[in-house]
C-alpha cells in the first residue's frame, strides 16, 4: 500500500532513496458532516433515544410527588424535585408484612449474590479445568447434558428441585436459593472456563508443573541438607537457621 502511494506522489522521487515520504499517511479524513455521517449518527441517536426513554421516565417519575404523577404525563420533567420517594422506597415502604422497604430485599440480594458468585466460579473453574486438561471417559457426555440443560425451560425442572430442597430442609431458605443459582449458572460458566483453559497453551501448565517440581526438589534437597546439618552439628533446635 505504502509503495503505491509513493509511486503516485510526484515528490517521491526525491525521497525514495532516503525515507518514506512525510506526505499524508493513514486514511483520507472524512468531513464530519457528510451525508453518510449524518445518516449513521442520526440512526444511532434515534435508537439511543428509544433505549434511554424508559430510563428517563424511571428517573423523572421517581423525583415527582404523588399528586404530580397522577396529574401530569410521565415524560414531563418534575416541577418540584423531591427525594422523599427514594428514602421511602429504601427504608419504609411496605412489601407484604414488612415495612422496611428495599433495604431488606437489597441485603438479601447481597447475601445471595456473593456466595453464589463465589461458589459458582469455584466449581465452574475446577470443572472447566478438568474438562479441558484432564479429559476422562464420559466427560463429553456429561458436558453435553449440562449444555443442553441450559436450554431446558426452568419450568420443567422446577418441581423436582423443590422436592429435593424440601427433603434437604432448605426450601424457602437463602441457602436453597444459592444452590439453585449455582446450579443454573453452572452450564454457561463451565463452558466459559473450559474454553478459556483450552485456549491456553498446554506448555504453560507443563511449565508450571515443572517449576513446582523444581521447587519441590530444591526444597527437599534443602530440607535433607538441613536435616543432615542439624544431625551433624549439635544444634537440635536449628537456631542457626533462625538467625
Amino acid at each position: 500500500m505504502a509503495e503505491v502511494v509513493t509511486l503516485n506522489n510526484p515528490s517521491a522521487k526525491v525521497s525514495t532513496a532516503t525515507k518514506p515520504v512525510a506526505g499524508p499517511r493513514g486514511k483520507k479524513p472524512r468531513p464530519m458532516l457528510s451525508p453518510r455521517n449524518i445518516m449513521i449518527y442520526g440512526a444511532l441517536i434515534f435508537a439511543a433515544v428509544y433505549y434511554l426513554l424508559p430510563l428517563y421516565v424511571m428517573v423523572v417519575t421517581s423525583l415527582k410527588g404523588m399528586p404530580e404523577i397522577r396529574l401530569g404525563n410521565i415524560f414531563s420533567p418534575p416541577v418540584e424535585i423531591t427525594f422523599e420517594p427514594w428514602v421511602k422506597a429504601w427504608a419504609t415502604a411496605c412489601t407484604g408484612l414488612n415495612c422496611d422497604g428495599l433495604s431488606r430485599g437489597f441485603w438479601n440480594s447481597v447475601r445471595i449474590t456473593i456466595p453464589s458468585t463465589v461458589i459458582s466460579i469455584a466449581i465452574a473453574s475446577v470443572n472447566g479445568y478438568a474438562l479441558a486438561n484432564w479429559r476422562f471417559k464420559g466427560a463429553d457426555l456429561f458436558f453435553t447434558i449440562l449444555i443442553v440443560g441450559a436450554f431446558i425451560p426452568y419450568q420443567v425442572m422446577i418441581y423436582p428441585i423443590v422436592i429435593v430442597l424440601r427433603e434437604m430442609g432448605l426450601y424457602g431458605s437463602l441457602t436453597g436459593l444459592i444452590i439453585v443459582h449455582t446450579i443454573f449458572g453452572m452450564p454457561i460458566l463451565t463452558l466459559l472456563f473450559r474454553n478459556y483453559f483450552t485456549s491456553l497453551p498446554e506448555e504453560l501448565f507443563k511449565a508450571a508443573r515443572r517449576w513446582r517440581r523444581v521447587l519441590d526438589d530444591l526444597f527437599q534437597d534443602h530440607a535433607a541438607d538441613v536435616a543432615a546439618d542439624l544431625r551433624g552439628r549439635d544444634d537440635p533446635a536449628g537456631h542457626r537457621y533462625l538467625e
Partner: peptide, 28 residues
C-alpha cells in the same frame, strides 16, 4: 480409578447434569 482427580473435580458437574438436568426432566 484412572484419572481419579478429574472425576473428583467433576463431581459437581456430573451431579448437576445427571441428577438435576436429566433426572429432573425425566421425573417431570
Amino acid at each position: 480409578l484412572r484419572n481419579l482427580n478429574a472425576k473428583i473435580a467433576s463431581i459437581p458437574m456430573i451431579l448437576t447434569a445427571v441428577v438435576i438436568f436429566l433426572g429432573g426432566t425425566l421425573w417431570t
